[in-house]
Design a protein around this nucleic acid. Structure first.
Ligand SMILES: NC(=O)c1ccc[n+]([C@@H]2O[C@H](COP(=O)([O-])OP(=O)(O)OC[C@H]3O[C@@H](n4cnc5c(N)ncnc54)[C@H](O)[C@@H]3O)[C@@H](O)[C@H]2O)c1
Ligand SMILES: NC(=O)c1ccc[n+]([C@@H]2O[C@H](COP(=O)([O-])OP(=O)(O)OC[C@H]3O[C@@H](n4cnc5c(N)ncnc54)[C@H](O)[C@@H]3O)[C@@H](O)[C@H]2O)c1
Lengths: 251, 251
DNA sequence: AGGAGCTTGTGAACGTGAGAACAAAATCGG
DNA sequence: CCGATTTTGTTCTCACGTTCACAAGCTCCT
């Protein structure tokens, strides 16, 4: 985040080429939907078609696209290839972004093996780990390198995106090293809140949180008919020895 | 989501014990922060302390907690253990939720090996795959089983949460099978929009989207000083043969 | 006991996002 | 060339989310 730099407070100032964050998060979905349509040989699609493919409502889709410009044709729809290019350009995936992955354990291996982002837009330039036993291991056509080489690699390959898949403990330290080396965007899989200076964007992927959100709704579904099985402790500041309970999930 | 069932349109109706979705998404973060404080032997924390640990602003944290009830003490703060229990109960992680993982490839293996959610709140009861070569493989103390056993397992173990880590192609089909078997919450890692009937909650984790969001901001950072390197094609409905470009990322 | 000092819980202001609805623009058929 | 039809781009309204600011309530000290 850390993206709400300058904005005049006066009128309902949209633009100055600023696209709402919620829209930015949906553009990749539209891009994927357009790619699917294109692969099926479809050359033109209406906002309704696209919205269905992307799983959103068509008014929202049209409004989202309107932030990019007027790329549709009234009465006709959108040219699939043309729109795809425009969205790709707006997102920035017409160029390749160099990415490093730090922490080549279970998850790091899975990401390294994944062909999905190698396809286009992102290029993994290094797999880094602090464990000497891992350094040198080959994964696909890459080799795990020592975390100490980070600074050289970032500078040489102009790396701007770093992925953290280390345990929670060292994550902040790794993050600091990445930032100091010049990385300005970080995707964090470790279950900790990382702090970064202004100008650095950070996003997290957190499995445990997703599961807990599902659990909350699941509990409500069950509870709709049945009663809450767990009684509501009525006491106040009980310094009670409560049953040790969740929260360590994913720490 | 599909969670906005009944709501009167009249007054600013909060509650009927409905917690805002944005708050629900932060409760797990608070839970983790409380666990960390607890592990450090801290018994009481102010909203300011907690907010710092959770990476949010303290007013937001207080408002979030106020939806659960009045569990703090003015002038003092919150009892860490007590609050932790209350949040865990509200989320529903005081009980164990049975989970199945479908698609034991790169990512499925990583998740299966991950001890993080086994800890508390979630219990992986089965690893399922359609590939006969994988069935029977041991991962930790579990064995990969045939996807055909899904229905039996869901019924026997009262599974309500399913995780999809198959390729995009079969994901919708797998999803339908899960729903038909009785699973009512799904966490999807495949890069497709899944459709589910009402009453089933679905969340997705999508690496490519996260990276693309970072790329967008990254591009804006570079562009602040420099000029956009890619010229803005001025033409309209050009059915042009544009350079084949991103979007397939993660498909 | 009473007042000073904190910290919570919440009302109100503000900002962002979603969706309905419709005018403007394009195509097509006559 | 004109009017019917289609579908975009945009405006308007409402709902949701965030933040400020402060009264209410608790503790502790004198
Ligand atoms: N595996 C999963 O399915 C999963 C799921 C959700 C979250 N996570 C989170 O993702 C992270 C990685 O999980 P994992 O299962 O791959 O863990 P892992 O222990 O298998 O791998 C961690 C790797 O990081 C390396 N490492 C440790 N300290 C380092 C440092 N200072 N610098 C560089 N490398 C360092 C280790 O050598 C190891 O190879 C963890 O934070 C975990 O909580 C994992
Ligand atoms: N590996 C990653 O780092 C990564 C990153 C982002 C997204 N993803 C996505 O996660 C998913 C899994 O990725 P992966 O790398 O583990 O893929 P993978 O090909 O290694 O594994 C997929 C597994 O699913 C199984 N499968 C296929 N069809 C099935 C069916 N109908 N029923 C049951 N099982 C079936 C396959 O046998 C295989 O074991 C993919 O959709 C991928 O796009 C993966």
């Amino acid at each position: 985040m850390t993206r709400a730099s300058s904005r005049r407070p006066g009128p309902p100032t949209r633009t100055e080429r600023g696209i709402p964050e919620a829209t930015v998060a949906r553009l990749p979905v539209y891009l994927r939907a357009l790619t699917a349509l294109s692969d099926n040989g479809i050359a033109t699609a209406s906002s309704e078609d696209l919205a269905t493919a992307a799983g959103v409502n068509s008014a929202k889709l049209r409004k989202d696209l309107s932030y990019l410009g007027s790329y549709g044709t009234r009465g006709v729809g959108y040219d699939v290839e043309y729109l795809r290019y425009q969205i790709a350009r707006e997102i920035g995936v017409t160029q390749d972004w160099a990415v490093v992955i730090v922490g080549i354990g279970n998850l790091g291996h899975a990401l390294a093996n994944y062909s999905g982002f190698g396809t286009r837009g992102f290029r993994i330039v290094a797999l880094l780990d602090a464990d000497p036993k891992l350094v040198g291991e080959r994964i696909g056509d890459m080799e795990v390198r020592d975390f100490a080489e980070l600074e050289d690699i970032v500078e040489r390959d102009r790396v701007s995106i770093g992925v953290i898949t280390t345990p929670a403990g060292p994550a902040q330290e790794v993050c600091d090293r990445l930032v100091a080396a010049g990385v300005t965007s970080i995707l964090n899989f470790a279950p900790v809140v990382l702090s970064v200076p202004d100008g650095v964007d950070i996003r997290k992927v957190d499995l445990s949180i997703e599961l807990q959100i599902l659990a909350y709704h699941e509990q409500r579904k069950s509870g709709e008919a049945a009663l809450p099985q767990v009684p509501e402790l009525p006491a106040m500041n009980g310094l009670s020895d409560l049953p040790s309970v969740g929260g360590g999930v994913g720490a």
